[in-house]
Nucleic acid binder design. Structure first.
Length: 639
RNA sequence: GGGCCGAUAGCUCAGUCGGUAGAGCAAGUGGCUUUUAACCACUGGGUCGCAGGUUCGAGUCCUGCUCGGCUCACCA
């Protein structure tokens, strides 16, 4: 047995053939991995060298207009080729995006630079290698050793083939790098979503190789519009959105800063952190869950407009909307309040969406989401608006009910009974008749008992069902109940951009109370497509009150709420130097990108999303609790 | 954690009632000097996710497990 020095390559007929080709190329050229390839710059491209994209963009128009099922006339070809001939030779590099189509003594193949493809044409009697070991080397022989996916650099003149395609007639070429692994299927790409996410490079290659006939033949504007973005286009758009948001802030006097990722205290949001250890200092550090408290220290220090666009880390579950590390844009503006921030956020998103997509409306699944107008509702209004069990309760929902704590709990209990008991009734039934009977029975029971109790303001049994912890202060329980109701009743319906305002104060420890109603915070969250996309508020700048709020959070922590916010005494001290009134916001960039690229999973808009390691089969006990843990609405980092 | 679906050649998939493992692409050989999902001919390629069970006989039926997807639940 010889030593296996390529354990990362499966051994099969495909890889063996490629390896044999590589050995022969190495023998013939002396160097199968040359260090550089000098390209021309006929296109005067931004890169300073001709790329396949720049060549296609610059010279594609020489192709005669295509007519279905017809070849261009000899006159058309002659005219195009006469013009192209004056350009002289072009040198470009790329990956063989198809297996060579060899026809005896000539061959066609396409090269790709990841974005565009350009056809090259090689003739046996008219091609020489640029590289050799001092002796004669047959270019055709070297060409025969090329595999789908290899990189080569070519030199030759541009021309248009009989079928009308812009191509390079190659006179000389250089072998640049080998693809030892077979390329993804040219028609299907990579269908396994796991491989797409785990091996993003293969996904991106597949996108550049995939032959999309509708797209190739320029089927027209409408078809183009309906087409799904490729993986590459998703990330190009992501880059563009981020660039536009930065530009929007930069133009308005915001300064970008970087605050610590590794922090001694993980605070500024309600979430559990990742823990690590600094050896030299011998202290534990936490990956930040939010930059909020650092950014506000900077507002104290005189940065009136400041932003940070970077990763937050939360040690929580993974879902289609949650990745353990995610990108958040957080910014603060002195002298502004929550209303100004909502206006600003709305304008910023609208502008960025237009610049990234060309329109204010985007298609997301079956929905069309319009960034042209954002709705604003208080949390209680939202509950009332989407309370759709009037038929069951027999009367219209009245917002004022939510002003009574006990009744609020019963409303939550009522809702849960409807949702869960009906689901259970449907599940335990053995047949359709039984099922409809069970559902009717449950409905009647809910209406006769739970609803009546709820309306009456009933007993405490409902509360103990929702929160058994007797030490929790009543206001906190009520706050959680209202929020719980909101999440169940309203959140799934918030498809069009909607600001939810007037959050209960106890769940908003960093925001100012509303002057109009001290029980609510001047805080909002932006919901789009049922997802929490942003979270902002009038920043609490009274150090004494902030200290008290932190202490309340510490109490919640002691009662077992692991996500309650951590006291940060240095931050409170910073506030004691005086912070101007200010508004702040955190925007979940990944979720915005999901909306603008029509991707249902956050893993499709993160290049390398976190996944369980491929090889390591987890032990049974590890497998279970990693996922059962709580998942917070991570876009809502600000709070 | 529950429910549903899936795992078969390098890739994408088919495989009927339980009876010798299939196609297209890719690969190898030969042919073809303007093809384009090139074409024509021939050839090689399989631990049917893993472990048990039923059976004369299992890709197929049963049980358990692993991995993945969707979904529900959990969720500041």
């Amino acid at each position: 047995m010889t030593e296996n020095n390529t354990p990362f390559i499966e051994d099969n007929d495909q890889t063996r053939a490629r390896r044999e080709h590589l050995d022969k190329i190495q023998q013939l050229t002396g160097n199968a991995y040359p260090n550089k390839f000098r390209r021309t710059n006929l296109t005067a491209s931004a890169e300073g060298e001709d790329t396949i994209t720049s060549v296609v963009a610059r010279f594609k128009h020489h192709e005669p207009p295509r007519i279905e099922g017809q070849r261009p006339t000899p006159e058309q070809l002659e005219a195009a080729n006469a013009e192209l001939k004056t350009l002289g030779d072009v040198r470009v590099g790329g990956r063989l995006s198809v297996p060579p189509r060899v026809m005896g003594k000539a061959a066609f193949v396409h090269l790709s630079d990841g974005r565009e493809r350009l056809q090259i044409y090689v003739r046996r009697d008219d091609v020489r290698p640029m590289q050799h070991r001092g002796r004669e080397l047959d270019g055709w022989e070297l060409f025969g050793l090329l595999d789908h996916g290899d990189f080569i650099g070519v030199e030759g003149f541009l021309f248009v083939t009989k079928t009308g395609e812009l191509s390079v007639h190659v006179r000389a070429f250089e072998f640049l790098a080998k693809a030892l692994l077979p390329m993804p299927d040219k028609m299907h790409g990579i269908s396994d979503p796991e491989i797409r996410q785990r091996q993003r490079y293969a996904d991106l290659i597949a996108g550049s190789l995939k032959i999309d006939k509708d797209n190739e033949t320029g089927a027209g504007g409408e078809a183009q519009e309906a087409r799904e973005l490729t993986t590459r286009e998703v990330f190009e758009r992501r880059s563009k959105i981020i660039r536009e948001m930065r530009a929007f802030l930069d133009e308005r006097g915001y300064i970008e800063v970087e605050t610590p990722m590794l922090t001694p205290i993980a605070s500024g949001a309600a979430a559990r952190p990742f823990k690590t250890h600094h050896n030299a200092l011998d202290i534990d550090l936490y990956a930040r869950i939010a930059p909020e408290l650092y950014l506000k220290r900077l507002v104290v220090g005189g940065f009136e407009r400041v932003y940070e666009l970077n990763r937050n880390f939360r040690n929580e579950g993974i879902s289609t909307r949650h990745n353990p590390e995610f990108t958040m844009l957080e910014f603060y503006c002195a002298y502004m309040d929550v209303n100004g921030m909502m206006d600003f956020c709305e304008e910023m998103l609208r502008q960025s969406v237009i610049k990234a997509t060309g329109d204010t409306a985007v298609r997301f699944g079956d929905e069309e989401i319009d960034f042209g107008k954002f709705e604003r509702l208080t949390m209680k209004q939202a509950i009332a608006k989407y309370w759709d069990y009037e038929e069951l309760s027999g009367e219209k929902f009245d917002v004022s009910w939510l002003d009574e704590p006990l009744r609020t709990f019963h409303m939550l209990h009522f809702w849960d009974s409807i949702e869960f008991d009906l689901a259970e009734a449907a599940q335990t039934a053995n047949n359709d008749v039984e099922r409809s009977l069970a559902i009717e029975f449950t409905k009647q029971r809910v209406k006769d008992h739970i609803w009546k109790e709820a309306k009456a303001g009933g007993s405490l049994t409902a509360i103990s069902k929702i929160d058994r912890n007797v030490d929790t202060p009543k206001e906190v329980k009520v706050a959680h109940a209202i929020e719980g109701l909101f999440e169940r009743v309203a959140e799934p319906h918030l498809v069009q951009p909607t600001f939810i305002t007037d959050f209960p104060k106890p769940i908003s420890p960093l925001s100012k109370a509303s002057p109009a109603d001290p029980s609510v915070a001047e805080r909002f969250e932006l919901y789009i497509a049922g997802m929490e996309c942003a979270n902002g508020f009038s920043e609490l700048n009274d150090p004494v009150e902030q200290y008290e709020r932190f202490k309340e959070q510490a109490g919640a922590r002691e009662r077992g709420d692991e996500e309650a916010m951590q006291m940060d005494t240095d931050y409170v001290r910073a506030l004691a130097y005086g912070m101007p009134p200010a508004a702040g916001i955190g925007i979940g960039i990944d979720r915005i990108v999901m909306l603008l690229t029509n991707r249902r999973s956050i893993r499709d808009v993160i290049l390398f999303p976190h996944m369980r390691p491929a090889a390591a089969a987890p032990k049974p006990e590890e497998a279970t609790d990693a996922q059962a843990e709580s998942i917070d609405a991570q876009a809502g980092g600000k709070a």
